[in-house]
Amino acid sequence: MAVSRVFALAAVALTLLSPPASSNTEGDALYALRRSLTDPENVLKSWDPTLVNPCTWFHITCNQENRVTRMDLGNSNLSGHLVPDLAKLEHLQYLELYKNRIEGTIPPELGNLKNLISLDLYNNNISGTIPRTFGKLKSLVFLRINDNKLSGSIPRELTRVSSLKVVDVSNNDLCGTIPTVGPFERIPMNNFENNPRLEGPELLGLASYDTNC
């Protein structure tokens, strides 16, 4: 009887001490990003996957429930590529990776970050198209993906993101026409400049939907 009671108490203690599964999932997602990046200045040195959760890692901010809400890695001399695992950061609000040397495409899975407020990927070497899944980012206010190598058209799904205040896609290789409805009514034209194949504001109902233009 005494032995059984000891085992029961030990099981309860282990349950209480075990980290939430979400914390491990978020840590795994961030560590997947670390593995995909080259980090010559060791800014990710503190990203230790053996810790309970990533809230003690540098450049990461968490809320009171130890859920990751912010990643600040702008101007960190990082290269490599983004990973779909970032979509597991369900509470992420700010994804700041500007002014690095990141290549490859934007994972469409990032469209699942329903709490994302700011996506700053400007001044990198990112190619491919702007994911249509960004139309699901209903909390998004700032979308800055200028100064990259993006191609294709501006997804019309973005016109349904009413929270958008800032969209900057300048200095890419986008094509098609510039949306003029929804949040795009108030975006200045210089936020679309230096896209040689991007045409002027579209006439209502004459949008270019071809991602290959």
Rank of each mutant, 00 (worst) to 15 (best):
N66T: 04
R67Q: 11
R67A: 05
R67W: 00
V68I: 02
R70K: 11
R70V: 01
D72I: 03
L73F: 10
G74D: 10
G74S: 12
N75K: 14
N75Q: 13
S79C: 09
H81Y: 12
V83C: 12
P84A: 12
P84I: 13
D85M: 06
L86W: 09
A87N: 14
L89V: 13
L89A: 10
L89I: 03
L89F: 05
H91A: 12
Q93Y: 00
L95N: 07
L95P: 02
L95H: 06
E96C: 01
E96A: 10
E96M: 11
E96K: 09
L97V: 08
Y98N: 15
K99T: 12
K99N: 15
N100C: 02
N100V: 09
N100R: 02
R101E: 09
I102H: 02
E103G: 05
G104P: 08
G104M: 05
G104F: 10
T105L: 09
T105Q: 15
P107K: 15
P108M: 14
E109N: 14
E109W: 02
G111S: 07
L113R: 09
D120L: 11
L121S: 13
L121M: 13
Y122M: 13
Y122Q: 13
N125W: 07
T129Y: 14
T129K: 14
I130L: 14
P131F: 12
P131R: 13
R132D: 15
R132P: 08
T133L: 10
F134A: 08
F134H: 14
G135R: 11
L137Y: 04
L137F: 06
L137N: 05
K138V: 11
K138C: 01
S139E: 08
S139I: 00
S139V: 00
L143K: 06
L143N: 02
R144N: 14
N148F: 01
S151H: 12
P155K: 09
P155Q: 11
R156G: 09
E157A: 12
E157R: 12
T159C: 09
S162F: 01
L164W: 10
L164G: 03
L164Y: 06
K165D: 13
K165Q: 14
V166R: 09
V166S: 09
V167G: 03
V167L: 07
D168Y: 08
D168H: 05
D168S: 09
V169Y: 03
V169H: 04
D173F: 06
D173C: 00
D173Q: 15
C175Q: 02
G176R: 01
T177R: 06
P179W: 07
T180C: 07
T180I: 11
V181T: 15
G182A: 03
G182R: 06
P183K: 04
P183V: 03
F184D: 07
F184I: 03
E185Q: 15
E185H: 05
I187P: 00
I187H: 03
P188W: 07
M189S: 14
N191W: 05
F192D: 02
E193M: 13
N194V: 03
N195C: 02
N195W: 01
P196G: 04
P196H: 07
L198S: 08
L198E: 10
E199P: 00
E199A: 11
G200L: 04
G200A: 13
